[in-house]
Simulated scan of single mutants.
Amino acid sequence: MNYLNLIRWKNLLMIAIVQLLIKYALLEPFGVQTSLDTLGITLLILATICIAAAGNIINDIFDVETDSVNKPDKLIVGKSISEKTAYNLFIIFNVIGVGIGFYLSHLVDRNAFFSLFVIISVLLYVYASYLKQTLLIGNIVISVLVALTLIIVGVFELLPSTTSINQQTQLTFFKIIFDYAVFAFIINLLREMTKDLEDINGDHKTGMNTLPIAIGSERATKVVFALSFIPLFVVGQYVVNSLYKNQITVLYFLIFIIAPLLYISIKLFSASTKKDFHHISNVLKFVMLFGMLSLLLYKFTLL
């Protein structure tokens, strides 16, 4: 179980589910021309979660000192698993992920796509070793990488199959994937900033320069509170402009996305303790999950 917790298996499962939903709930039902068969999408998912697992491992390796303060009961590297073993697993997962990415790029006859896997792998290492300590840049970079786990499906599935005849259709569905990626970026950015508020004590001890450390916990909370209205406004506009004809879909968004987002804004207004921020972080993960699961309803919105 320690190894599963090290690679953050729940997060990896969410990545796999989202990529499967894009393939089988968004693209396939509408007969969109795609490039990957069942084996191909399986390999893409495997490559993505291997690289993500490697990123989680290297993050834990560099966070040993911080985690010993912030969450000593959940410390894995140096306690349940040695640092040497963790480094070996980091290398193994990276080699497998990048190797599969190399194969997939040749499979769709787009050799340049291989660079995506290399860039993501390198950025995850740079994030863990350096960017995480910098003001906001680390938060933005990791949120971009989360968004890329969605976009990469569009890149491999749609771009190689695009012709002059189906170009408009491919572009329409790529835009839908991109919109979901933007949603994932915003929610994850809020969650990263909330986690910085939760982990301020350990981060301060290890010399990190997160937003709460730079401007103070109270001011940082107000910033996150103000930013929390962005996804609320964006999703609200989307429901009003695109989903109003389908009552089931509207109800889903109201209950599982808009209501929790409103709850988060209310909680942020008065949040001040580590427990408060941990709770808000978990609710944001809930919003992310149900936002992605809304792909199952997409066929109803296009009827």
Rank of each mutant, 00 (worst) to 15 (best):
L295M: 13
V250H: 07
I61Q: 00
V18Q: 00
Q19M: 14
I258P: 09
D179Q: 04
E198W: 04
R110F: 14
T163C: 10
S217I: 15
V126H: 06
F290W: 06
E65A: 04
P260Y: 07
L190E: 03
F300Y: 12
I142P: 02
H204E: 11
L254H: 00
M193E: 11
F62T: 08
V77D: 05
S143D: 09
F114K: 07
K195C: 02
G101W: 03
M1Y: 12
S270A: 14
K132Q: 05
I58A: 02
P260D: 11
F178D: 03
N2G: 13
Y238T: 11
Q33P: 09
I280G: 06
G207D: 07
T221K: 14
Q170S: 14
G101P: 09
T163Q: 01
V235L: 09
K132Y: 04
L4E: 09
L297T: 05
L124P: 01
N188T: 14
F102Q: 02
I152C: 12
S115K: 05
A271T: 08
V224S: 12
K175P: 00
L148N: 09
L131M: 14
I165V: 15
Y24P: 04
L232M: 06
I215C: 15
M193P: 14
V146R: 00
G202S: 03
F178Q: 05
P29N: 11
I230S: 02
A271W: 06
K245H: 15
Q237R: 06
I91V: 12
F93R: 05
Y130C: 04
M14S: 10
N11E: 04
L46V: 12
S294L: 08
V234Q: 04
S217F: 13
V77A: 04
F174W: 00
F269Y: 15
K205I: 10
A112W: 08
F174Y: 09
T66W: 00
D276H: 07
E157K: 07
K195R: 04
T172Y: 08
T221Q: 15
K285F: 06
V122M: 13
P160W: 13
L124C: 05
Y103P: 03
L148I: 10
L104H: 04
L4F: 14
K23D: 10
D63S: 02
I137E: 13
I57V: 14
K175W: 08
V234T: 11
Y180D: 11
A25G: 09
S68C: 05
I280V: 04
L21Q: 06
D37Y: 12
F185W: 03
S228I: 10
